[in-house]
Amino acid sequence: RSIPGECSTKLLEEMEQFLRSETSVDFTFLPPWIDSPSLADDLNQDLADKLLNTINSIVAQPRAKQGAWYGTDASTFAAAGVPAVVFGPGSIAQAHTADEWIEIDQLRLASEIYYQFCTNPN
């Protein structure tokens, strides 16, 4: 996964060059099926700060901002100039699996955070 400011095309070229320099095995290097930009903070800082403040006013243990190591449509929206953040109940380890589930308490908590976030002008 690329990081903000990194060009994925250049990254893939460098990766292929590195792999070819480290092995004598011939291989075919195909581009990824999906190439999406990373989600940078340059457009979403205010939105992320408001969301984090809302979360921390509701949850028992304060949370800190962290980057998402997984793919998300939010990066495509942000690349189009739409501020975007990623937030939701459950665990990314369970997301999009055959046994995906969340606890009802997590759903209720997330619903309250969404409500407060959308209705609070601060």
Rank of each mutant, 00 (worst) to 15 (best):
L12D: 01
F87T: 02
L51W: 02
V59Q: 08
A64R: 04
E6F: 01
W33I: 10
D105V: 09
I113S: 01
G88E: 12
T76R: 13
P89H: 02
S111L: 11
P37N: 12
A95L: 14
A64W: 00
S2R: 12
G67S: 04
S24Q: 12
P121K: 10
V82K: 04
R20Q: 14
I102V: 15
W69Y: 00
M15N: 08
F87R: 02
E112W: 04
P89I: 02
R1H: 08
S21Q: 13
F18R: 15
L39M: 12
D46A: 14
A68I: 14
K10C: 05
P83C: 09
P4Q: 14
F87L: 07
S2W: 04
S38Y: 03
G67E: 03
G81I: 01
A98H: 10
C118S: 13
P83W: 03
E112L: 13
E13G: 05
I55N: 06
Q45F: 06
A60I: 10
D35I: 13
H96A: 05
P31S: 09
W33D: 11
Q116W: 04
E112N: 10
I113F: 07
F27R: 14
S91F: 09
D41E: 10
Q66G: 07
Y114E: 04
L47P: 00
E13F: 03
L12N: 03
A110G: 09
T76K: 11
Y114T: 08
A48I: 00
S111Y: 10
D26L: 11
S2L: 07
R20V: 13
I102G: 02
H96C: 01
T97E: 10
E112G: 01
L30F: 11
E112F: 08
P121A: 06
E103L: 11
R1S: 15
S38N: 11
R108P: 00
Q61A: 10
L51H: 05
L43M: 05
T28M: 08
V86W: 04
I104Y: 12
F117H: 05
A84W: 02
L52S: 04
G81T: 02
E112K: 15
S75E: 05
L30C: 11
E6Q: 15
N120W: 08
D105H: 05
Y115K: 14
S91D: 15
D99W: 02
F18N: 08
A110R: 04
H96P: 07
P83A: 00
A48W: 00
S8A: 05
T119M: 13
L11I: 03
M15H: 04
L19P: 00
D73S: 06
H96G: 09
W33M: 12
S21D: 15
A68F: 09
G88N: 14
K10L: 14
E22N: 15
T72N: 07
P121W: 07
I92N: 12
P32N: 11
L12E: 06
I3M: 08
R1L: 12
Y115M: 11
I102T: 11
V85K: 01
D46M: 07
A64K: 09
Q106S: 14
V86G: 03
A79T: 05
V59N: 05
E103N: 10
Y114S: 08
S111I: 06
L51G: 05
